[in-house]
Computed example of a mutant assay.
Amino acid sequence: MSQDQAAGLRQWADSQRQKQAPSQLDAPLASDTEVVSETPAPAPSAVSPITTIDEQPVAKAPSLPKKPLYIIGLPGQGAQSVKQVQHRLAQWSALGRHWAGSPDDWDIQAVSVNAPDLAQLSTKHARWALWINSDADAFAEMYRLLRQARDNGGPRRLLALHEPSLSRQGLLENLREAASHYLATDLLVLAR
């Protein structure tokens, strides 16, 4: 091995060490034990096999930050409620809605329409949703939530989150029209 090749290998090994985590920096690489003399290299036939550097562990790609999704009207504030939203996002993704991605891509946050920082959150974050129940009083309850959100400086554009069995005609369309006409709020209802 010529000196230029050895210097190139040392330089490469140094750059690899700099990329490693601090705990791995103390472990010697195979190139650390290899000694390069200042004398010319022997003839190619007399060269012993070159010590190779073991394959370095593949560094994990940094995970992308989760996309925040703020939801009003979510029944309860626990993990079960978040699972409902994740389940719905997974259904949309399965239907070919690429924006839904994986449910794990989302940072789902339940927010009360009476939260003191609702206006600040609304101006800071663009992704908002309204969880729409499908019981007999759903229209009145959801309209009340949208009105309170508007009165407290909440978002003016929300995605309608609901169970897939809920038809677009009826509750969803009526709620979308009322929100638009009376509250100047866009409620995005996705078709199947």
Rank of each mutant, 00 (worst) to 15 (best):
A30R: 00
W99H: 03
S2L: 04
A7P: 00
A43P: 00
A41M: 02
H98R: 13
G96H: 05
L69I: 10
G153F: 10
A90N: 04
N152E: 10
A59K: 12
R88A: 06
Q148I: 10
P28I: 03
Y182N: 09
M1E: 15
L145D: 06
W99G: 00
V189E: 00
A110I: 01
V82L: 11
P44Q: 07
Q16P: 00
R168L: 13
R10L: 04
L29R: 02
R168M: 10
D107E: 15
Q80H: 12
S167G: 10
V82P: 02
A138P: 07
A129Q: 03
R127F: 12
P103D: 08
T185K: 00
A126K: 12
E34Y: 08
L171K: 09
S93D: 07
R147W: 11
R192L: 09
L175N: 02
R10A: 06
P164Q: 14
V58M: 12
A61K: 15
S2V: 00
R156L: 14
S45I: 11
P116Q: 09
L158G: 01
Q5H: 08
G170V: 04
L89T: 06
L95K: 03
L95D: 15
A129R: 00
S81L: 07
A140C: 10
L25W: 14
I72W: 07
P22G: 07
P62N: 02
L166W: 01
D186G: 04
G76Y: 06
V35F: 05
L89C: 04
D104S: 11
A30K: 00
Q11N: 08
S165A: 15
T33K: 02
M142G: 03
W106F: 04
A7Y: 00
I72S: 05
L69R: 06
N114V: 11
N174T: 13
L145S: 06
P164F: 14
T52Y: 02
E55W: 01
L25D: 05
Y143W: 09
E173C: 09
S122W: 08
L118M: 10
D117H: 14
N152Y: 05
D32G: 01
G78Q: 08
L183D: 04
A94Y: 09
W131T: 02
P42M: 06
D4Q: 09
L9T: 00
Q20M: 10
L175C: 04
S93I: 10
A100Y: 07
S81V: 07
W131G: 03
N114S: 13
Q169R: 15
Y70I: 10
A178W: 08
W99V: 12
N152T: 05
K83V: 13
P49L: 13
N152G: 08
